[in-house]
Design a binder for these strands. Structure first.
Lengths: 144, 144
DNA sequence: GGTCTATGTAACCATAGTTGTTACTTTATC
DNA sequence: GATAAAGTAACAACTATGGTTACATAGACC
């Protein structure tokens, strides 16, 4: 049970909004699809709203909706909206700088982690919410 | 303070062994370089030993040493030795399968995470412990 | 205006992961 | 046999996460 499920849930939430095609959707309805508490959903949607990926409306008939077309939202946008900058453990990594290795290893690791992270993020950037939306539809090209 | 520092510390540990060039190094000496407890180091080295990246020797004059040349050990080898398979939160992600979105999103996410993870790992595979070792040496080509 | 509905958010709890630490066993060397 | 080192279990402190309750805020509708 490593890591958190914020990103996974967030993609689910936005995929649900895409699936609903522009109508206002309440946190309660989304929570039923994710099988969790509405507050958990609203917490995530709060971050997604700040990132301008969704818009929120209070009151009767209110709810959440996508701010942009699914084709214009990438998984990287979602990832960055809900995940803090990963530090790959460097925050608790405080080697002894009196040792030649300890003095230099941090910089080396930082460079390596940056490359790995950049590579992963560029892969997320290649997948749009529209791609996810398309995959939600059953694929039955030869249905008769 | 997200995540753990196992990978970062493990790279430090192996870089230290590479720096020591083949001699037996005790967990106490490594712990001094990392600035932590020897047991923490031995825990990591236990995983690294199981992955056959290092060999251990008990008793007087014992300690740890690299099993292969630094050029033959990649950061991906180290990563896989000390990190569990990342699930990106999918373990705690149990959507409602009665919902059309909830029923399909898991597979879609699994595919996306696999691509991102593979991309990151291929970047780690491109960096060897020898590369790290080289970067440990001060670069003063024009020193006079 | 008043009521209803929905978001926004703070506060708290249970659970689990991580690290540091002590203590002990096992094993190799001398 | 004494010593030194790895191997590992057990425990404590700290933190992150997700679920929950409670309440404040704001819009819709009568």
């Amino acid at each position: 049970m490593t890591g958190n499920s914020r990103f996974a849930v967030s993609v689910h939430v936005l995929a649900y909004l895409a699936y609903k095609m522009g109508g206002q959707v309440t946190s309660a309805e989304i929570a039923a699809s994710v099988d969790t508490n509405p507050v958990v959903i609203r917490r995530l949607l709060s971050a997604l709203t700040k990132a301008r990926l969704v818009s929120a409306h209070k009151g009767v008939g209110g709810g959440f909706g996508l701010s942009s077309a699914p084709a214009n939202i990438t998984l990287l946008d979602i990832y960055r909206a809900v995940e803090p900058q990963p530090d790959h453990g460097l925050e608790r990594f405080t080697p002894n700088h009196k040792c030649p290795v300890g003095a230099r290893i941090e910089t080396i690791l930082r460079t390596a982690f940056f490359k790995a992270q950049t590579s992963m993020e560029s892969e997320l950037a290649r997948i749009s919410l529209e791609d996810v939306h398309q995959q939600l539809k059953p694929v039955c090209p030869g249905k008769h």
